[in-house]
């Protein structure tokens, strides 16, 4: 297990609101990390910081040991699936994939598993603006996995997906883990995290409440269900 991503002392403020309060952590390969936390706890901000979409006020982010401040090359190794995927209205699905292939200049063979599994090829001629939210999510997912990235960052991946599509995505995620990849998932759906995650990170008001392997948590609390684990841990804290 190699450390792929390393965050040290990340701070970020939006206006008066301090969203990330001194976050430090590591992410290792061959691992599925589930980032949990209530709304506005800083999950998305942390992910976006890793992706260089949000620029932290303080702290370092390292990718394979190298600082990533204002660089962009490391994103070659990351596949990102946004919470809401929106694309140029008049672009067709096929063109979108072509464009991404074109601008990423990737010489590896693209991973088209999800394209096939979701039967997106038959919809290649449809403009993006005519698609349903679920189909857009499928497109986003397919794009994230397309370039065989070492790291996958999935922001609420299953929101809006039907159960079949969700299942396909889960299988894909597990397959990638088996390929020694790092997968970071934010989700509200605890059962899903439980099913997939090796490690759970819980963010609360911009701080890491805990970041531990699921197995360790289960041991610690003696609970199997993630929901119960969380209730136990968090109420203990508050008591």
């Amino acid at each position: 297990m190699d450390t792929l991503i390393e965050l040290s002392h990340i701070k970020k403020t939006f206006g008066k609101l301090q969203v990330l309060k001194d976050i430090s952590c590591h992410f290792e390969s061959g691992n599925i990390v589930s980032v949990l936390g209530p709304n506005a706890s800083g999950k998305t901000t942390m992910i976006k910081s890793i992706l260089g979409m949000v620029i932290p006020d303080e702290g370092d982010i390292r990718f394979c040991g190298a600082r990533v401040n204002k660089t962009f090359d490391y994103k070659k190794y990351i596949g990102y699936m946004p919470q809401i995927g929106r694309y140029p209205d008049n672009m067709k699905i096929g063109q979108l994939f072509d464009m991404m292939l074109d601008i990423r200049n990737c010489n590896k063979i693209p991973d088209t598993d999800l394209i096939e599994a979701y039967r997106l090829k038959s919809m290649y001629h449809k403009p993006m603006r005519t698609l349903s939210g679920g189909t857009r999510q499928k497109v986003s997912a397919a794009l994230a996995f397309m370039f065989n990235p070492d790291v996958l960052i999935l922001d609420e991946p299953t929101a809006g997906l039907d159960p079949f599509a969700t299942e396909i995505l889960k299988q894909k995620i597990l397959a990638e883990k088996a390929n020694n990849r790092l997968v970071i998932i934010t989700s509200h759906i605890l059962s899903e995290s439980e099913e997939l995650a090796d490690t759970v990170m819980y963010l609360y008001e911009g701080k890491i409440k805990f970041y531990e392997p699921l197995a360790a948590l289960q041991m610690e609390t003696g609970e199997q269900k993630l929901g119960k684990i969380l209730t136990r841990l968090l109420t203990e804290e508050h008591v």
């Binding site: 992706l51 694309y87 140029p88 601008i103 794009l143």
Partner: peptide, 11 residues
């Protein structure tokens, strides 16, 4: 959002 997507790419 498209811009966001591009920013998440190596560009």
């Amino acid at each position: 959002e498209f811009t966001e997507l591009l920013v998440s790419q190596p560009i």
